[in-house]
């Protein structure tokens, strides 16, 4: 069954069709939520909320890119999660990795002025990138995640972020600029092919 038929069935209230669509997109939805929020549990909550909202408002989908429309739900769910966090901020006393082990250098302890020894503790490139993403303003983060991590084109990002195309261009440029500055602090973690030009100079 193709995507259009599944969407049409879901618009008529067929939950099974919508669940088929969920299975197709759940990885990218979760990944987007994870990169925007930076916390796996909260990202799961946001992804679930996004799918519930999507089913409830699927009648408003008027064609176009379904992925972009779905990503709009995800970014909205992430913004809601941020607002919730602002109202009731929680910080774990002993932050753990996804494996349940205590984190040596949790992201919330990361500092732009970290010493080289602390930097070396940031053992994964992923953590470094996530740290830089977390440092971005939320609206910049959403744009850069959708464009550069999800590989969506500008018009899809504009649909998902619900902002004009010109704003997408501007936010993406600013986000890349800030990421470039931030990633310079993790130069030794980066693969040689991705070493930043400015650092070499």
């Amino acid at each position: 069954m193709d995507e259009t038929a599944l969407i049409h069935s879901a618009q008529n209230g067929d939950l099974d069709s919508f669940n088929t669509l969920i299975l197709r997109y759940q990885d990218s939805v979760f990944h987007t939520a994870l990169r925007i929020i930076g916390d796996e549990d909260l990202a799961q909550d946001a992804a679930q909320e996004a799918f519930i909202s999507a089913f409830r408002s699927i009648s408003t989908f008027r064609g176009g890119s379904f992925k972009a429309w779905l990503m709009r739900m995800v970014t909205n769910a992430c913004y809601d999660e941020f607002r919730r966090q602002k109202r009731r901020p929680t910080t774990p006393l002993e932050p753990e990795t996804s494996d349940g082990e205590e984190m040596d250098s949790p992201r919330w302890l990361a500092d732009p002025n970290m010493t080289p020894a602390e930097k070396s503790e940031a053992d994964e490139l992923e953590h470094a990138i996530q740290h830089c993403l977390d440092a971005l303003p939320t609206e910049f983060r959403a744009v850069v995640v959708l464009a550069d991590i999800q590989g969506m084109d500008y018009s899809e990002v504009a649909t998902a972020a619900h902002v004009p195309l010109g704003t997408i261009k501007s936010r993406l440029a600013r986000a890349r600029l800030r990421l470039r500055e931030c990633l310079r602090g993790f130069e030794e973690l980066l693969p040689s092919s991705f070493r930043l030009e400015g650092e070499r100079n």
Partner: peptide, 16 residues
Amino acid sequence: ILRKLPARKAPRNFTL
């Protein structure tokens, strides 16, 4: 670098 980030799979199904 961002595009090199490994895609994380959903840890569970989000079916409704």
